[in-house]
Structure formats: structure tokens, C-alpha cells
Design a protein around this nucleic acid. Structure first.
Length: 882
RNA sequence: GGGCCUAUAGCUCAGUUGGUUAGAGUGCUCGCUUGACAUGCGAGAGGUCACAAGUUCGAGUCUUGUUAGGCCCA
């Protein structure tokens, strides 16, 4: 595209170009993993398996952040010439999807039960085809350069095969078994759910009931406190702390369970019981409380169920059997009160688990489920992190990982749902009889085998993600080339439930760790620090920020976002992604937008200037003639290194803000400004060399900035001269160029910048109009180039006269005298001079004080002392100059 | 109850191993159509680095305690 297309576009409008650029990238095939090149056997690979979003999902801020993070890494490494693969796909998300489809059926007056399992699955597949995959389109919009041609789904045919094989293998290895165990029962979905899907709600108001359990021998009683009196039928003991003197004599005696026909239970001692809570005696109900379950196991007590999976009381509850738990609670309290056993009712506020899916209160209960034994899998997974085969960033997170794996409990992998991977398990006759249980893909020979209705926990299938997506269990080339993957980037909350399981299963089945680096990214909160949530009005849709949708209520100013564009959102998210929890910052997005606009205009300026001078198709190459040229080439080299280093080190804020600082604070504010006079007034050869260098600087900047802000850089790339450029997405990362680093030029220009800034500040203070050109004199020559730069940037006219100066400006070792001029407010100049003198004298006092401190001079390193001495010398010179 | 993190400008955040006068963006004030950009340019004000003690020649940085906020586990 010729540069003249840019002539009338004074603003960069992301909304106008970004969608078209997405199409360009997609149709170019640049995103797709290239086939292995036989001529480059040593070609490095770089791969990331995306955390598969729920197939029902829509893009939220977390996706946008993680997409930006992963994409910057993928783009950087693709440009480096590595063979990259960004594995893309979606998760079938058992409960979430089933719930959505059931809601839809309910709206249509239909139900899951009416359709039957097969019909429901067909319905869900159809639903997925229609609504699923929306998030994939959204990923394209933010510029995520995933390999869309290889999209996977955790329930596609190949994946199903992998999941079934892992389940069957683990069963055969004795690591998967069926057992009675405590699960998080969600009465809403009628299924056991994982810890992840449980939400602890603080501040729930309950009533704490104190109930008297009389001793069986009729001598006295023990009072226990509970918020769940209806579970008392499942009590198997009363526990007290062994240190608690009040109950020393009670240990070993029997108490009678009220309302239970005289059933007695023992009083036991356990450290877990808190002496100062309630009466200090705890009723033990292993069937309905996770802590009690543990205590029960320690004391080899049974774990009877007083509540069934239907949420109703069991036979154990005697006269209350069949009642829903809420009704049973009321009835039991009433009966206890009538019998005189109820001693107190106190309000009690505590934390209670709820189902995230159904919103119902979790009913912990014992159920016959399929479990995975974790100890044997956890050990190598801990070692992989402690010996560094997997590195977790930031390091503090690796402790959480190790701690969790060290205390890991069996994992309940079965779920009572229809949408998911159905267990490859068949029963005949009594399903509780292990000899009539068969685990395999097909039922065994013979009559009467029926398949287990349950499906696997969604995290079971996600645990295989890094290798199942690469073709496992087949020994594919992809698996050979891209496993282990390079990086996994994900949110903190699934470190245990997903990351740890991938490591365990990857080691067991993939034959190696699933990834080398794990990056745990920030959690993005609403601007006011609350959790982002649609229902709270704190949720911000990234696409609204990109395309200009309405601001959610959490923004006080209301109105619509301007269409910031995807680059701005990517930049803004990366720029805040530093500490653990960060607040969404529209300011930072705006900063990204400004960066894009700045880059656009700087490039536009250069291209239009060159075209005007007939230099439009000159080749971009470094042709330094001045310190300014050497300086920008040196700075470019350093920024290229620093950007790559920051991205490699997962310091995304440093990378993005570093780019901003360079483009604004060096390339545009200084280099382009320094180039203007030479471009205007230089001879033809000067102009040609400068044109080549300017183009080179733009070219290199676009490459360096591409991983963070791919759209505007790609757009500008298309306007640069040269037909063979291709797309920036496929261009190469700048090769390391040690010769470009030039310390002398950097120091020289730094001094120039300091002088210009000092003169500008002085002018402002003494009321000089910005347009006025002031006569001035340098005490010492700075050389032709820098004096010319100083003239144009500080708007002064350097003269050689020896008249009296009315004012003097010093910065570093440079001293500028100014002569009388109508533009100078002499009174202000005097004031400014006095203030400056005060400042310098203060500094001198401080430093000489430091230097006359014998302790400092003797004990501080010589270099530090020398720095202070040099400083003092410069200050004294400056004072003398005034 | 156990463990961890955070506290720096009005706001959002940087600040490597202790070593210039603690920085940026944004907001605020003042000035400017300066040969790309008003989504611009230039300048300026604004901080007892939560509080207290300690280590050190020297502490935003290290140690201990206090306070406040957050997270994880039980």
C-alpha cells in the first residue's frame, strides 16, 4: 500500500483496520503450524496449549489477558523462526453446559428426563454447534494467533479415545477404584461436584442448637452443639479433647442418642476438638461432615447416612425418614424441644459451602463413587517442580502447588451427569459386587451387562489436554515435536485442579512433564477492587472496550467506551499484569491506544516526508552519520533485547511499558525531532542516509512492538516501501547486533536532552514565549552536531559575543549564557537564578556533609565515594557559573 | 486457627543484588495551531515510601513488631 494512502489519516482508527487485518492473518496461513522443514533438522519448536475455554463460554477479561500473554509469546517465538504451535480448543464443561441446555429445555417446556440420555446428548451437541465456538471467534478478534485449523474439543473422537484409555489403564494399575467416600453433593444438579465448583460463602446465619445426650447409665449428660440437628441420626460418637479436664471421666462411656430408640454411641477423645468451642463436646457424624469423616476414619468408626442422595432422610432417621432435610430439621428441633433435650438455640454466623452451579447449599455425604488414588501420582509431580523440570512463575506459587500435592486426597472422578465422558464401566446383577464389575470400552461377553450411567469429572479430561490434543495415544509427529509444550499460562485458581493434574497425568501417560514453564497470571478485578461479575455490575466485556460498547455500572462516568481497539486492550492488560491481583485500568488501555496512534503518526510522518522528497522507495538500513543516528540505533538494539528478555521472563508489564517509553520518550520526542532539521535542510546525501536510517528505525520498532500490539504494527508494515515484505506476523525478530550498541553516543545524546530540558524549563520560568528565538552563548563548544540540535530544540541562537550575560543555565557540565532580550522577564530571571543557587548550595552542603563523614568515606565502596566527589565537583562548577 | 501476599503522588502502579535529588501513566495547573499526531507539544505543582523500633557509613529496599486490606488452607 503506498504511503500516500496515509496522507489524510491523521488519527489511527483501530476499528477501521483491525477486522480486515484479522482476515489477512487468517487467510495468509501464518497462524498455522508449518510442517517440519527437513532442511532444518535443528529448528527449535515452541508450543502452548491454550487453557480450553468452556464451549458455552464468552470471552471475559481473564481470557483477554491470558490471550494477550500467550499471543505475545507465540508471536515473539514465531518471529524468532521457531516452529510454533498454539493448540486451540474448547472444553465440553460437563455441568456448565448441561445446566445451560437444561435451562433452554425448560424454557421450551421440555426436560432432560423426557428426552432420555441419548436424546439429551443429541440436543446438547446441536446446541454446541449453534452457540459453542463463539469464544473462538472472539479470540480471533483480539488477534490471538492460535492454530485455528487444528481446533480440538474435549469430546471429539480422538480425545474420547485418550480419555477412555487413561481411565482403563489407571483402573488396571489399581489407581482407579470404587469406594464409599465423602463427596460434595450438589442437591441442585443431583451430582457430586468438585471442590472447584464449591464456593465458600461467608457470613451465613444459622442457629446453633445445643442438645443434651444423656449417659446410658443414667448418670448425667453431655451437651453437644450443632447447626445440623437432623444429621444426629448419623452420629456415631461424641468426641472431646483429651486435654479437656471437664470430660476426662466421660471418655469411654456411652451416651444415648435422643429420638433414636435408645441407640447408644461412645464418647471418644480426639485432638481435633476445640476445647473452647460450644460445650467442648463434638458430635461425630462421619456421613455428613468432612471433618467428622476424617475423625471417623481415624477411630475406625462406621459412616452411616442419615440423608440420601435425594435430599431426604433415610431409614436411619426412624420416624423422620422420607422427609426433606429442611422439614426434618424443623421436626427434629420440635421433638427435641418437646423431650426437653434442647438446651439452647443461639444465632451462629459461619462459612458454608454452596454449589457454584446450582446455588444450592452443598450436602456433604457419603456416596459410592469412582476415585483416583493420588499419592503415587503426586510424588513425581512434586519432584518435577522441585527439581526444576517444571518452573512455576512467580515462584511463590510453586509452594502452593507442592503443599497441595503433599496433602492430596483421593479424587472423586465420577459425576452424575449425562453430558461428558461416560465411564467405561459395566455392571451385571448387583452393581456393588466387584466381581460383577467390568472396566473396558466394550462390555464383556455374556448377557446382562449395563453401562455405568455416570460421566467423568470434566477435570479428568482436561488433565490430558497437553498430550491428548497432540494425538496421544498414537505416536504422532506432533507429539514428538511439541511435547512437552513450552509454556502454560493460566489463572491461579486452577493451579491445583488443573495444572497439578496435568503434571501428574502428563508424567504418567505423556512420558514427560506436560510443559516447561507455568505462568500464573494476575486476576483482574473491577476498577473498584471488587470481583468482576455480571450480576454485581462489575463485569467488563473486553469486546465492549475494543469495539466501543457501554460501560458497566462500576464506571461512575457511564457512557460508552470509545472503540479503543484490540491493541489498546492487549497493551492495557499486559501493562497492569504485574502483581497478584490487579484492578482493570481504563487509563492503561488508553495509554495503549495512544501508543498505537503515536506509532501510526510517526510512521506516517516519515513516509510522507520521504515520498515528498522522492525517497519513497529507499531501502531501510542503518546509515548512521551523527551521534543521534548512532544513539537511536543503539537504543533500538537495547530495546529489542529488553523486550524479548521481558517477554521470555514473563514480565509483560515491563515489556509493554518499555515499548511505550521508547516510542514516546526516545523515538518520537527526540529522534524524529532531531531528524527534522536535517531532513529539511540537509544535502541530498545527508537526506538519503537519514531516510534509510529512519526507515530502518521504524522497521525495527514495528518488529519489536508486534508481539504486544500486532494490529497497528501490521497495518503500518503494509505501508513501508518494498514489495517483498510480506506480512509482519511472518517477519523475523531483529537479530542480535552487538555493533549497534554505542555507549558514547548514548551518553552524548543523554547530555543533550538534559541541556535542552533545562533551557526549556528556564524559558518557561522567565516568561519567554515558546516561539521566541533567544540569543545565547555556550561556555564551551559542544561540537557542530550537538550545537545545531540545541539551537533547534531549545529555540536559541548561538552567538560568539562576549557581552554580559543576564542569565545562566547549567545542566551537567554544560553552561549556557543568555543575553538581554525583550522576551526575558528580568525579575523572574533573577528569582529563578536565586532559587537555582539555593538548590545547588543545598546540594553541596548535603554532599560535603556526607563526604566529611569519616565513616562514610572509610566504609563505603570507593566507587560510591567517587560518585559523590564527582557530583560535588560538577555542582561547584555550576555554582561558579551562576 | 495455620500459611502467604500487599501497603510508594489525588487515582492506577513501577522501583533488579541496600548507594544520585524515589519514577511512569492518568488526573490537576500554566503555556503553545512548534513543518506527524490536540488521542498532540512544552513546562510545573504534587510523596515523612502505612506506623514503630532495629541492623548499617547509608534503608522505599534487610530484620522484628503494630495497624489495615487481600488470598489460600482448615
Amino acid at each position: 500500500m503506498p504511503a500516500s494512502d496515509l496522507s489524510t489519516r491523521t488519527r489511527y482508527e483501530p476499528a477501521e483496520v483491525e477486522p480486515e487485518i484479522v482476515e489477512r492473518w487468517l487467510s495468509s496461513g501464518a497462524y498455522e503450524t508449518p510442517p517440519a522443514d527437513p532442511s532444518r533438522p535443528d529448528q527449535e519448536t515452541f508450543s502452548i496449549a491454550i487453557p480450553p475455554p468452556n464451549v458455552t463460554g464468552v470471552l471475559h477479561m481473564g481470557h483477554a489477558l491470558n490471550g494477550s500473554i500467550q499471543d505475545s509469546l507465540i508471536r515473539l517465538n514465531r518471529m524468532r523462526g521457531k516452529r510454533t504451535k498454539w493448540i486451540l480448543g474448547t472444553d465440553h464443561a460437563g455441568i456448565a453446559t448441561q445446566t445451560q441446555v437444561e435451562k433452554k429445555l425448560a424454557r421450551e417446556g421440555r426436560s432432560r428426563e423426557e428426552l432420555g440420555r441419548e436424546g439429551f446428548t443429541v440436543e446438547t451437541q446441536a446446541w454446541r454447534k449453534e452457540y459453542g465456538g463463539k469464544i473462538i471467534e472472539q479470540f480471533k478478534r483480539i488477534g490471538a494467533s492460535c492454530d485455528y485449523s487444528g481446533e480440538r474439543f474435549t469430546m471429539d473422537d480422538g480425545y474420547v479415545r485418550a480419555v477412555q484409555k487413561v481411565f482403563i489403564d489407571l483402573f488396571e494399575q489399581g489407581l482407579i477404584y470404587r469406594d464409599h467416600y465423602m463427596v460434595n453433593w450438589d442437591p441442585g444438579s443431583g451430582s457430586a461436584i468438585s471442590d472447584l465448583e464449591v464456593e465458600e460463602q461467608e457470613g451465613v446465619e444459622d442457629v446453633l442448637y445445643s442438645i443434651a445426650y444423656p449417659f446410658a447409665d443414667g448418670d448425667g449428660e453431655i451437651v453437644v452443639a450443632t447447626v445440623r440437628p437432623e444429621t444426629m441420626f448419623g452420629d456415631v460418637a461424641v468426641a472431646v479433647n483429651p486435654e479437656d479436664e471437664r470430660y476426662a471421666s466421660a471418655i469411654g462411656r456411652e451416651v444415648e442418642l435422643p429420638l433414636s430408640g435408645g441407640r447408644t454411641i461412645p464418647v471418644i477423645a480426639d485432638d481435633h476438638v476445640k476445647v473452647d468451642f460450644g460445650s467442648g463436646a463434638l458430635k461425630i457424624t462421619p456421613g455428613h461432615d468432612p471433618n467428622d469423616f476424617e475423625i471417623g476414619r481415624r477411630h475406625s468408626l462406621p459412616a452411616p447416612s442419615a440423608i440420601g442422595e435425594d435430599g431426604r432422610m433415610t431409614e436411619l432417621a426412624g420416624e423422620f425418614a422420607g422427609l426433606p432435610t429442611e422439614d426434618a430439621k424443623t421436626a427434629v428441633v420440635e421433638a427435641l424441644r418437646a423431650s426437653g433435650a434442647l438446651r439452647a438455640e443461639d444465632p451462629y454466623v459461619h462459612t458454608v459451602p454452596f454449589s457454584q452451579r446450582s446455588g444450592k447449599r452443598i450436602e456433604p455425604l457419603i456416596s459410592l463413587q469412582w476415585f483416583m488414588k493420588m499419592d503415587e501420582l503426586a510424588k513425581p509431580a512434586i519432584e518435577a517442580v522441585t527439581d526444576g523440570r517444571v518452573t512455576i512463575h512467580p515462584p511463590v506459587q510453586s509452594r502452593r502447588y507442592v503443599d497441595w500435592l503433599s496433602e492430596i486426597r483421593p479424587w472423586c472422578v465420577s459425576r452424575q451427569l449425562w453430558w461428558g465422558h461416560q465411564l467405561p464401566v459395566y455392571y451385571r446383577g448387583d452393581s456393588q459386587d466387584p466381581t460383577e464389575t467390568y472396566v473396558g470400552i466394550e462390555p464383556p461377553e455374556g448377557e446382562g451387562w449395563t453401562r455405568d450411567e455416570d460421566v467423568m469429572d470434566t477435570w479428568f479430561s482436561s488433565g490430558l489436554w497437553p498430550f491428548a490434543t497432540l494425538g496421544w495415544p498414537d505416536e504422532t509427529d506432533d507429539l514428538k515435536d511439541f511435547y512437552p509444550t513450552s509454556v502454560l499460562s493460566t489463572a491461579r485458581d486452577i493451579l491445583h485442579l488443573w495444572v497439578a493434574r496435568m503434571v501428574m497425568l502428563g508424567l504418567r501417560f505423556g512420558g514427560d512433564v506436560p510443559f516447561e514453564d507455568v505462568y500464573i497470571h494476575s486476576v483482574i478485578q473491577a476498577p473498584d477492587g471488587r470481583r468482576m461479575s455480571k450480576s454485581l455490575g462489575t463485569g467488563i466485556d473486553p469486546l465492549d472496550v475494543i469495539n466501543g460498547g457501554p460501560r458497566p455500572p462500576v464506571f461512575k462516568q457511564g457512557g460508552d467506551f470509545p472503540a479503543y481497539g484490540a491493541d489498546a486492550v492487549r497493551f492495557g492488560l499486559l501493562a497492569i499484569s504485574t502483581t497478584q491481583d490487579v484492578r482493570f485500568s481504563e487509563d492503561k488501555v488508553q495509554q495503549g491506544q495512544q501508543l498505537a496512534n503515536k506509532l501510526f503518526n510517526a510512521t506516517r510522518f516519515v513516509l510522507l516526508q520521504l515520498e515528498e522528497r522522492g525517497l519513497g522507495d529507499i531501502a531501510a538500513e542503518p546509515r548512521p552519520r551523527t551521534d543521534a543516528d548512532r544513539w537511536i540505533l543503539s537504543r533500538l538494539e537495547r530495546v529489542a533485547r529488553q523486550t524479548a528478555e521481558s517477554l521470555d521472563g514473563f514480565e509483560f508489564a515491563k515489556a509493554s511499558l518499555g515499548l511505550y517509553d521508547f516510542v514516546y520518550g526516545e523515538l518520537c520526542d527526540w529522534f524524529v525531532e532531531l531528524a527534522k532539521p536535517r531532513l529539511r535542510d540537509g544535502d541530498e546525501e545527508t537526506q538519503r542516509d537519514l531516510a534509510a536510517t529512519l526507515l530502518f528505525a521504524i522497521d525495527k520498532t514495528l518488529r519489536i512492538a508486534h508481539p504486544v500490539i500486532p494490529f497497528v504494527t501490521e497495518e503500518l508494515w503494509s505501508h513501508l516501501p518494498g514489495d517483498e515484505r510480506g506480512l509482519l506476523v511472518s517477519a523475523s525478530w531483529p537479530e542480535r547486533d552487538d555493533d549497534a550498541v554505542d555507549e558514547a553516543a548514548e551518553a552524548g545524546i543523554a547530555e543533550l536532552i538534559e541541556t535542552v530540558t533545562a533551557v526549556r524549563g528556564w524559558r518557561e520560568r522567565v516568561g519567554v514565549k515558546p516561539s521566541a528565538i533567544l540569543p545565547a552563548r555556550l561556555r564551551a563548544s559542544l561540537g557542530e552536531e550537538r550545537e545545531a540540535s540545541l539551537r533547534s530544540l531549545a529555540r536559541i541562537d548561538l552567538v560568539t559575543g562576549s557581552g554580559d550575560a543576564v542569565a545562566t543555565v547549567t545542566s551537567g557540565g554544560v553552561v549556557v549564557d543568555f543575553f538581554a532580550d525583550d522576551n526575558i522577564d528580568l525579575e523572574a530571571a533573577e528569582k529563578k537564578k536565586a532559587a537555582e543557587r539555593d538548590r545547588i548550595e543545598g546540594e553541596i552542603k548535603r554532599i560535603s556533609g556526607k563526604l566529611s563523614n569519616a565513616n562514610f568515606v572509610e566504609r563505603a565502596p570507593e566507587a560510591v565515594v567517587q560518585v559523590e566527589r564527582d557530583k560535588l565537583a560538577v555542582l561547584e562548577e555550576q555554582l561558579a557559573a551562576l
